[in-house]
Write a protein that binds this DNA or RNA. Structure first.
Lengths: 135, 135
DNA sequence: CTAAATAAGACTAAAAAGGTCGTATTTATA
DNA sequence: TATAAATACGACCTTTTTAGTCTTATTTAG
């Protein structure tokens, strides 16, 4: 329930690995997948997402790969999670807004607003932690 | 990924509802289920778990039901989650221990220990929040 | 031209979550 | 003492999510 998904784990591993290299160094999805025993195709798709959001930059073709596009202290863990799993994944109670959306018991729910305290705290923790602090 | 499960939501709703009644007041699973539009059988099983752990006390037979067995300030949200979903549900990375367990890339994983910072924070938030503070 | 890389979407399999059903047991009370 | 209404408990089913695989297209250095 509060487990990181494999995708996020793989994404963080990849980002951290890239952050440990030289500035501007290129890495292929294949080499990272092999080193950490991650399914290649899965990692490839994760890196494509990270690339679309500008955390890493891709270069196609032979001799291609990815390189980090930000400094480790600019890479918030929360943003990486958002990119890989979507923002909804970090909301502990779905119906935070005043509209019902997914929550079938919206009108009678009595725990929604009290739990926003937890939400705020978790958000803060994840917003504060950067890849820099993962070393 | 960081959503509370429906079971936990239902459990918290039930506990909060009971906490808003008179001291020692009995409630049936049926009346709570109806009031908050929760599937009855599901809520019943959740309350059985809460009863086994002593958060609430059950009385069988006609005129039976459940009554709260602790003061709202003694009811930690973290313990309620543990009871309903198991302790594993709150560990953001599975392989915290030094044994591989579920994690297939244990030996090569480089994010395990850094993320314990998040774990510690989340634990603290959930340990601190009680049902008392849900009003 | 080719080999090795990213890009992207469809598909499948496995696991988790959510919900339902059936049966047993308990107990107040008519 | 029979009955109705409650908890107890396990098996089962369905849906959703997660994880992983497969296929095809595109790019590009050499």
């Amino acid at each position: 329930m509060f487990n990181l998904s494999k995708k996020v784990e793989y994404g963080l591993i990849a980002i951290k690995h890239m952050a440990s290299g030289n500035k501007g160094q290129m890495f292929t999805a294949k080499e990272i997948a092999e080193k950490y025993q991650i399914p290649y195709e899965l990692l490839a798709k994760i890196m494509q997402k990270l690339s679309k959001k500008g955390f890493i930059v891709s270069q196609q073709g032979i001799k291609g790969g990815y390189r980090l596009n930000k400094n480790p202290q600019e890479l918030k863990v929360s943003e990486i999670i958002h990119t890989i799993e979507g923002k909804q994944s970090l909301t502990i109670v779905q119906c935070e807004s005043d509209t019902p959306e997914n929550c079938s018991i919206h009108t009678t729910c009595i725990i929604k607003s009290p739990l926003l305290k937890i939400q705020t705290n978790i958000n803060q923790v994840l917003d504060t932690l950067t890849v820099m602090e993962m070393f």
